[in-house]
Write a protein that binds this DNA or RNA. Structure first.
Lengths: 333, 333
DNA sequence: CTGTTAGCGCATTCAT
DNA sequence: ATGAATGCGCTAACAG
């Protein structure tokens, strides 16, 4: 049975007819009840119930220029670092009556451009990017579209519009400073090869004042890739003392591999991750990391968009949410 | 600076004028180039480039009854079990020109109903649910809406429409049979309390022919909750031989807690998870689990929706993707 | 191959 | 407090 529904969905027209009022009165009764008499509202409500009317948001959006949709763009949903952000974004937006349309770029600038184009075509009331918009063409398009945009998870001198993030260079610098304070000389890096991870590596190396043996792994990072990364690093330097990882998943992999090789953590090898994934506090030993409040980023981004949509002027369109080091057993001295 | 764009976005009207053709010819040149002369297409394309035209998909959808959007509904994005499904769904849909609108139910039937209502209002060309639709009201609404629906990750005698899933009772039964074959008598269950996890527990207990000590944990399951669950189970039975977990995250937590207490895995305590998360193969010891192809579920769901949208008749609207036991070190004898 | 006509379902003018 | 007209931007019919 593949037949389409035999029922034509009820429109506002049907509701108005059933309620014995005009189209526009029915419309107002539903979307602006303040200006309609109580009796009328009741009649309309009864008609809605009896007809099973569901407003066509496409039509409403076309006319009112408010689609009640917000575009959310991630490199890939499986990048678990962004998950709390997307989740909080979705929840916070839903509570304001907006829904999220998802787009994936696969870390590819061309795909980013095409995703943004179709996204703009859907007339979203806002667009939230995880990361900065890469291509210049896309940046221009976004600006000219007039759609409120929030870039997240990074900082920039010239954001497209609004921004909620933090400095990855500073994160790398902080971890580098921490390693220096511990006196570790023979250190390595296990890292993803995306833009932000590279910024953290840059900051780390700058603080250390030199290049550091590095194992690059493709996205998405995982426990398995962490194990391989440590194997690679130990080939480069068999006497490694500490490893800085671009995610807690990688860090856990490095740790598993180290323990499997009979290395003690942290005595023989210290490990630091990034992101403060929930499992990191509960492994044995627990994993030192850098905490970033991903959910807060999502909430703030949602609020910026919603404020803009309401025509409120946004006092602080660029927000640095910062970060903090979390020392746990994997690097405690 | 909170000013809205000073440029009014170009419409198809502007493109047509710039290209010196009629509105509908411009429309066809873009969406149905086969019926337009090559010269005209070129003129229109040039006009598109010069005006920066981006089609308004809301308007197109209103008229054509094809919104090119598909609703995707999950309990919560953080339920990592569904992530490969949502990711594959998004990717596969994108390749067919559709985009995903996200909805979250928080495992709550009322919220499911309200999410589905606004979803229907957006006139999606299809709706994909992770799990079955809970509320009867929502089921009726969905049926009457005529929108193609795919429920996933479960089986049902009377699906709303189409279905891609597997039997959780059978999964539980398979794990129970596996435990029986190993001769483990003192067994426990660490499980989430959602519908599907309970079905697996039922299947497990039915096969064992009795009730089994159980630690229930709230969603989303995590390593931490797994540690607590084992602590709870060991209080109920200090001589536990094996634990069946409702996710690999829980299983990892149970394992970490066991090792932290000096128990050997699997000699003192055997562990089995569910979901075949990527890390499970690479922990030490590696984690036995039940494999379900979540990405395949997403791909199949997308194809069913797309086929329906193209008016093709769907030969097999209910697909059982099955599962398989994956024995690893945590339960190897 | 191209153009004209007529809406899709609703919300924003205006009027009463 | 209610209603009539108008059009958002686009595409499905039909015409030529």
């Amino acid at each position: 049975m593949n037949a389409v529904s035999p029922f034509k969905a009820a429109t506002l027209h049907d509701v108005a007819k059933a309620a014995g009022v005009s189209l526009i009165t029915a419309s107002r009764a539903l979307s602006n009840p303040g200006v309609v008499s109580k009796k009328t509202i009741e009649k309309v409500q009864a008609a809605v119930d009896s007809t099973g009317y569901i407003p066509n948001l496409l039509a409403g959006g076309l006319k009112s220029k408010r689609s009640l949709m917000v575009g959310g763009i991630v490199p890939a949903l499986s990048v678990s670092q962004f998950l709390p952000t997307v989740q909080a974004l979705t929840t916070e937006l839903a509570s304001a009556g907006y829904q999220l349309i998802l787009g994936q770029t696969s870390y590819d600038a061309e795909q980013e451009e095409s995703v943004l184009n179709t996204m703009i075509g859907r007339q979203p009331d806002g667009i939230v990017m995880t990361g900065l918009v890469q291509s210049q063409k896309a940046r221009d398009r976004l600006r000219r579209s007039g759609i409120p945009v929030v870039e997240t998870w990074d900082l920039s001198d010239r954001p497209v519009d609004m921004l909620v993030g933090f400095s990855h260079v500073k994160v790398g610098g902080a971890v580098g400073g921490y390693f220096l304070s511990k006196g570790w000389k023979r250190v390595g890096i296990a890292t993803g090869d995306d833009h932000r991870a590279r910024m953290r590596r840059d900051g780390f190396q700058t603080t250390l004042g030199r290049e550091v043996p590095t194992a690059f792994v493709p996205a998405p990072s995982s426990l398995e890739l962490g194990r391989r990364a440590l194997a690679e690093l130990l080939e480069k330097d068999p006497h490694l003392e500490a490893v800085c990882c671009s995610s807690d998943q990688l860090a856990q992999g490095v740790m598993v591999e180290a323990l499997a090789r009979g290395l003690r953590v942290p005595q023989d090898l210290a490990i630091c991750g990034f992101g403060n994934a929930d499992f990191g506090a509960h492994t044995v030993p627990s994993i030192s990391t850098v905490h970033v409040d991903g959910a807060e980023i999502g909430r703030l981004a949602a609020r910026l968009i919603v404020a803009r949509c309401r025509g409120e002027s946004v006092a602080q369109p660029v927000i640095d949410v910062g970060f903090r080091m979390v020392e746990r057993q994997s690097s405690a001295s």
